[in-house]
Design a protein around this nucleic acid. Structure first.
Lengths: 199, 199, 199, 199
DNA sequence: CATTAAACGAGACGGTACGTCTCGTCTTTGC
DNA sequence: GCAAAGACGAGACGTACCGTCTCGTTTAATG
């Protein structure tokens, strides 16, 4: 899962971006997110914890919300393969989110990142860009294929499908603050197939 | 939909001066929520806009998050009756949320209130208390009845059911920031009945 | 020597200015001036030392330079009477400055205040206003009287006279950073009478 | 008036100090001094304006104060001869300062340089070293000679004499920020001769 | 010549301070 | 007698500089 904010490559003069500093900042960001929430999140605290300068933070991220989303995305692992079974292939799409949400820190970090994405323009765009690339596009291909095989109905709305797959996760994380059980994704995929089943 | 934070009981007739102030504060709160988001929300701004003293605000609400949730809940109308059709009865449970989310201001206010509930202890408790009273309890009765009639299967998890009904709404409001179309609730209810259909 | 920045009198609502806070700030200001010079002077350090909020400082002084000049002027005692002898009356005008400059802290504080007055618009105006009220105006009366008695010549330039009386003090404080010996004012007055002697 | 900070001569390998860079830095320094004062003076701004690297600046000057004094001294022309008349010979000693102060930029640069000398150790030493070499030593010889001819009294304090000659200039530049009229030095010398006249 | 050491521009970085804004508490005044 | 107005300590905001530290390029003296 490559970090969305690219380390600008330079064949320019001068020193290049310090990767150590970047890693320390993202680490500290995650800790502060989990400890203080979105409104209590403070750039000063991140800078102090990461032994970084605020200037460095503001230099590389367009907003603190974007930094929070960035720090969160780094927690989400890559998708597994999925195999042949339709349900397993759908499950595989969202299992990385389940994995992240099932760790104690990840749960809180996801919650704060979602608030950040809702509040902050840059954070929202970053979040939706990731969603588009890692969830929406693969899902589009998968749904088209399943529709071709008449496993699901031909008429579907891609965004609504995603909404129904991921929405329950947000409810659990944001509203209930309850742990995400293993198999959450599997259940979502099963339900999905029922709702969208052909004819 | 009565405001959860009780206005201290006056057994004297007529609205007290305090009630006017309270209404002005909640109005100002909604405006500020819609304009500035959760992190940018400021008590000072609310006080100034409502011509109220900060002291008055801190006196009535345990935290600013609770005030935001309170201001949001006041936007949510009462449930309609629903009739006899199972889908309509389920729909009726969440239609007030749909109604609130379908206004421009309500969309933003719901988004901020959810962030507040995720961030702030008091706000979260207030939000979940409302959910329990206005969604979860009625839903529990409804589901029991439907299960009795074998419309849905007997084994279900109440909280997961709610999760699947409301989750898509959160996704739309928080993540996509997209408008909620009319009939959103109806579609959710239809999908729900398929997923939870008996045998 | 009343503080130039007035404590705004209010028949407004709300609390009045905290004199304790003001005194603590001016004290801390003098200490910081003596320790760090003009360029190294920091509002943060003053606030921390005085246990005051920066907001309070920025509220009551138009600029940090003005605050420095204010803190310095509070060190300068009132003029003694002077008596009848022309030299003594001239001496009496500048003896408060000598007194301030002869204390260790006062020497440094005067040095920083002069830099502040040279750098900062508000500080300069405050300084010159004090000079006008406490030095220039009394000096004008005194010189007119001495000219009337033909002790000094009739044609003189008031500002040049002040320049020659005070200039040496600035040289000693700013350039040489050397202590001001007792009797400095007396010597200046004696020299002054020679230069401006009638005929 | 040779620049005090020596361009270290090298029979070492590598390029020698770039005089173009040095001149650009001192030029930029004077502009920034005049525009921003001592507290607002910024090395970054000088570097940017001079298209120089900060490293280069820190390499050749011990402190930014020293750089400011250096930049200022470069504005002060050499002394004229002075002739035989005692007043003219004294005048000639300080006329370069008058000349510098009578230009618009020079006035401001002198003011900032004096603040720098008062604040910064290195700047103060540089300033006093220049004063010693270009004012104090020549003055010492001159006063000794005049005392020998009984033009002035035998007992005098060299530093107090300088204090009285230059002090008024500082008052005008630092306190009044008023222009220095032509003939200022001549007047000082005349006054000086009266004050120090023999018996 | 090629080598090599220094000078230099550009600029990243950890820090500190700037001047402003907000929080939550406390105090005074006026309706 | 309450509620407005607002002063206050505390601390975060996003920006600017400081002084140090690489980088890569350019410029001489040396081998």
């Amino acid at each position: 899962m490559p970090t969305p904010t690219e380390t600008r490559k330079s064949s320019r003069k001068g020193p290049t971006r310090s990767e150590a500093s970047k890693a320390a900042i993202l680490d500290a960001t995650r800790t502060e997110m989990a400890e203080n929430g979105w409104r209590g999140f403070s750039v000063d605290a991140v800078a102090k914890r990461a032994s970084a300068s605020k200037q460095t933070i503001y230099k590389w991220w367009p907003s603190i919300g974007a930094m929070c989303v960035d720090a969160c995305l780094a927690l989400i692992p890559d998708s597994p393969d999925g195999g042949r079974d339709p349900q397993e292939r759908i499950t595989a799409l969202i299992v990385p989110l389940e994995a992240a949400a099932r760790t104690g820190a990840g749960h809180a970090v996801l919650r704060v990142a979602l608030s950040a994405a809702a509040d902050d323009k840059d954070a929202g765009e970053l979040w939706r860009a990731w969603m588009n690339r890692d969830i929406r596009m693969p899902m589009r291909m998968l749904l088209a294929e399943l529709a071709g095989k008449r496993v699901i109905r031909r008429e579907f709305d891609l965004d609504e499908a995603i909404e129904e797959m991921l929405g329950p996760l947000w409810h659990r994380i944001m509203v209930m603050k309850a742990p995400v059980r293993e198999g959450f994704c599997s259940a979502q995929a099963a339900g999905f197939l029922k709702v969208y089943a052909a004819s």
